[in-house]
Design a protein around this nucleic acid. Structure first.
Lengths: 140, 140
DNA sequence: TCCGTAGTTGCATATGATTCGCATTTGCAT
DNA sequence: ATGCAAATGCGAATCATATGCAACTACGGA
């Protein structure tokens, strides 16, 4: 909500106080946030944004490909983060649901063969699954 | 529920009529199914499996890495499919939510650098997102 | 600068997938 | 065959997300 953030405002999106708040929170966060997380953060800010409004804003941002929506394994809450180039991927343990970051990314150099040849790729999500060392030892 | 299916029964899972039905339905399906889809199919079978039981069975199968659980973009219903080697990936349009299959897979030859070096990879999920040709032309 | 209006938000309430509790039933080891 | 631990049927609870509507706000044109 200061000058700097205003100048970064993405094109094609009408500017409102609430959208600026949500955008600013996402910009400052270094990890993905749930809608509820974001709502709570606006409350600390002194100027609360109602939860359903947060959902509507996140839906808009997702459709504009400004934000990536992900729902991690077993977790019934979707999380959102800015569609950055500097991204991370995760391995999820199906035994204990532990989430472990992957350091490299196989998709950077990948040229997908998509049947819609006009498809304009804006990003990707990837997730490995399996057993973490601990669960694997319990040979489940 | 015939001999052939019985002989395929996965190790480490107690065999019940309901689990056999769910497993058989997943085996015969060539696409991912929701819990409700599976429940409906058991009803046509004449021997209905209650929805909450289907969920419990799918959770078990997922923890045994027999089944992959996925929740596609925007769709609030999780889908499940057998963890096959012959798998597919998808590109999702953030404009219209159209789902387009990808023909090749970047992860086959990928050696991930995971901080848990004991992680036992059993499968993966991948999804591209962007605009399909049609939505891209509308320059959204 | 002020006004009109289309688009947005606050708020309450609905929706619908998934989970949970418990009494009954079933698979399997002894 | 018998007993017991585990699984299921069924109902009801939970909880994230969507929706309806009246009040409000951003923003372009006069």
């Amino acid at each position: 909500m200061n000058k700097t953030e205003n100048s970064d405002w993405p094109a094609g999106i009408k500017r409102t106080k609430q959208r600026e708040q949500v955008f600013s929170i996402l910009t400052k966060s270094d990890g993905p946030l749930s809608a509820m997380d974001i709502c709570s953060l606006t409350q600390k800010d002194g100027n609360a944004v109602w939860l359903s409004t947060v959902y509507r804003i996140l839906e808009l941002f997702t459709q504009k490909a400004l934000v990536v929506k992900t729902s991690m394994q077993q977790n019934d809450m979707a999380v959102y983060e800015l569609n950055r180039h500097d991204h991370k991927h995760y391995a999820v343990c199906v035994g204990c649901n532990k989430i472990i970051p992957i350091e490299n990314c196989p998709i950077e150099r990948f040229i997908p063969e998509i049947s819609d040849s006009g498809f304009h790729v804006l990003g990707h999500k990837m997730e490995l699954f399996g057993y973490c060392r601990e669960c694997d030892l319990k040979h489940r």
